[in-house]
């Protein structure tokens, strides 16, 4: 269950690419108009430059989004632990869960005292990713 699958949302459409191209062209035009206006001492140079830079940034961002590696989804399975306990001498054997294990199932004889052992617990341990500040 650790297979990976490609999300269809990651595909890029022609329409999307066309929008990026148009934005890019308009931004370049706005920038060149800004430069011309600056040379002519026109006060609107700042506005052209602003629109141009915003357009450039937007199209660059959109282009980056299309180049992003397709999002991959995974299916992680937690590690489950089985604890086998000897009722007589208290010997503990901790191992990964195996199919067929269940709590209170009789297990193999104890290696210390040869008494029948029993599955005392089956659980998974969760490592908290972040400290809970509001507990």
């Amino acid at each position: 269950m650790t297979e990976k699958a490609e999300s269809p949302a990651a595909r890029t459409s022609f329409f999307y690419l066309a929008i990026i191209l148009v934005t890019l062209i308009l931004s370049v035009i706005a920038l060149s108009l800004g430069v011309t206006a600056l040379q002519g001492g026109d006060a609107s140079a700042g506005s052209y430059a602003l629109v141009g830079f915003i357009g450039l940034a937007l199209s660059a961002y959109m282009l980056l989004q299309t180049q992003r590696r397709p999002s991959r989804v995974t299916f992680e399975m937690p590690q489950v632990i089985t604890t086998i306990l000897c009722q007589k001498c208290g010997f503990k054997n901790i191992r990964d869960f195996q199919r067929g294990d269940y709590v209170f199932k009789e297990a193999e004889p104890c290696p210390k005292c040869n008494e029948k052992m029993m599955i005392a617990s089956i659980y998974r341990e969760v490592k908290e990713k972040e400290k809970e500040r509001l507990s």
Binding site: P78, V80, F97, S121, I122, Y123, R124, E125, V126
Partner: peptide, 9 residues
Amino acid sequence: VSPMRKEIF
């Protein structure tokens, strides 16, 4: 519905 956590056990 997922494998029992240690805290719950």
